[in-house]
């Protein structure tokens, strides 16, 4: 997978979450995503950026335009040095929230993207990466 361009935003406030959404929307427009694809990836980014802020205590969001075998897509990576997720399977379960949320963000982001990777351990922080490919 080749990275064509990369931009990052530090996420410390809820205004930064808005900025992440705007950057993701810009990237998906640049790639010529359909309105449905745009909406899906922007919404996924909103979920992950907010988790980064609320549970991770802030971190960085990286937005990349990537290519793989003639396909192009948008890769979003969210990294924090927060408390980490003790039980990833539980965190991904629909309806589970350790806070006051609906518990649908992590699972929802996974369903809204094509590739989904999560790397997290207690005390180590959390890194979530998703890709949505442009429809051919």
């Amino acid at each position: 997978m080749q990275v064509q361009s990369s931009q990052s935003i530090s996420v410390r406030t809820s205004e930064d979450v808005v900025a992440v959404r705007q950057l993701v929307r810009k990237g998906s427009l640049l790639l010529g995503f359909t309105i449905v694809d745009q909406t899906k990836i922007v919404t996924a980014s909103s979920e992950l950026a907010r988790n980064l802020l609320i549970y991770g205590g802030g971190g960085v969001a990286i937005v990349e335009i990537v290519q793989n075998g003639g396909r192009s897509g948008l890769r979003l990576t969210f990294e924090d040095q927060g408390p980490g997720i003790p039980d990833i399977e539980l965190a991904l379960r629909d309806g589970y929230s350790s806070g006051t949320g609906m518990g649908l963000g992590l699972g929802g982001a996974k369903r809204l993207s094509h590739d989904f990777e999560i790397d997290s351990a207690p005390g180590k922080g959390t890194r979530v990466s998703i890709v949505r490919w442009k429809a051919l």
Binding site: I35, V36, T39, K40, T43, D94, M102, L104, G108, R111
Partner: peptide
């Protein structure tokens, strides 16, 4: 809108 409806369903709301 249709795109919102689809996304909401994927979220599981």
């Amino acid at each position: 809108r249709p795109q919102i409806a689809q996304t909401i369903i994927h979220l599981g709301v």
